[in-house]
């Protein structure tokens, strides 16, 4: 069977859930061949086996993660050629898309970004223009490179015992031109990653200030959720920009999205419209967010959200 290369998305050996989604997806098309780049493989190998990796290519050299993106594209390009892979799957994160872009140049092939599903012939489904349009696109010739939106594919475990193959790569000088000299990990506590989380609680203009975001965080923590923010909230400096959900921020697709004090302008909807279940709390009954919700409360978030947090905590 032909191999589908899956770039493992991990941070220092901690594998992101999207990797299991990619492995699940890859198994539809052939042998899921995980590509591990950087240190930390030993601690993660069981996880890759649990989700059906038929093979794991391990490029463990620490140097590969010391530069911005380019080394990952070089490893993938080498493997894609050597193994005559049928397709390459990466996560549609900022970095995943950059890897995909560089790889597309190297292999002179097309790239599909931010797909939410893939059909048998590698046609990708896209949710575009803020979720208003569903489009299908494909790579016309050559090996498709597909960046898949986290949380779009339902994971299915399938135990395997993957064959391991060590990969050595001699990096080009160009790949070593943007050196990462320090990695700064900012405190985020125990909360899941925004794009990976099954539940996201976001706050907007109605939250009214940075201090009040503790209400959003409290609700998120009661549900084990990630915290997001609308552009109005990040513009005002109430919450850091990397948590912005929307057209110019992150696109999220969780099982449950709770919008608190967010009116639901297109700017915001574009980043959360494909969430499976949507709940909103807003004092304005005319707010466009209510067009999207499965369940909405018209009310004061300062009353409703803390009560909800308390109720959720009680039910645990």
């Amino acid at each position: 069977m032909s191999e589908i290369l899956v770039l493992v998305d991990h941070l220092d050996g901690e594998v992101k859930k999207v990797t299991f989604e990619l492995l699940t997806l890859a198994r539809r098309f052939g042998d899921a061949a995980a590509v591990w780049i950087g240190p930390g493989y030993e601690g993660a190998k069981d996880k890759l086996a649990e989700y059906g990796a038929a093979k794991v290519y391990v490029a463990a050299d620490e140097e590969l993660t010391s530069y911005v993106v380019a080394p990952k594209a070089e490893v993938l390009a080498q493997l894609a050629r050597e193994k005559s892979a049928a397709a390459v799957l990466v996560s549609a994160t900022a970095e995943g898309k950059e890897v995909a872009g560089r790889l597309a140049i190297k292999l002179d092939t097309g790239v599909l970004t931010d797909v939410v599903d893939v059909a048998d012939d590698f046609t990708g489904e896209h949710s575009i223009f803020g979720g208003a349009i569903v489009a299908h696109a494909k790579v016309k010739s050559g090996m498709p490179i597909i960046a898949v939106r986290p949380n779009a594919i339902a994971v299915e475990a399938s135990q395997s015992s993957p064959a391991e193959e060590q990969v050595s790569v001699t990096l080009s000088d160009a790949a070593k031109s943007a050196k990462i000299v320090e990695r700064v990990v900012q405190e985020k506590g125990e909360r899941p990653d925004l794009t990976e989380a099954a539940i996201v609680v976001s706050g907007g203009r109605g939250v009214g200030g940075a201090d009040n975001f503790s209400i959003i965080e409290g609700l998120a923590d009661s549900l084990g959720a990630a915290v997001g923010a609308s552009r109005a909230a990040t513009d005002a400096g109430w919450y850091p920009h990397q948590f912005q959900v929307g057209q110019t921020g992150k696109t999220v697709s969780p099982q449950l999205y709770i919008a608190v004090g967010i009116s639901g302008a297109i700017q915001h909807r574009a980043g959360m419209q494909t969430s499976k279940t949507i709940v909103a709390i807003n004092k304005d009954s005319e707010a466009p967010i209510f067009d999207l919700v499965d369940f909405g409360i018209v009310g004061d978030l300062f009353q409703v959200a803390p009560q909800l947090t308390e109720e959720v905590n009680k039910r645990k």
Binding site: I297, A305, Q307
Partner: peptide, 15 residues
Amino acid sequence: GQIVKDEGDGGTKIA
């Protein structure tokens, strides 16, 4: 969806 006006128990209703 279902949209309800808060009557003091909005949080409970969401829960």
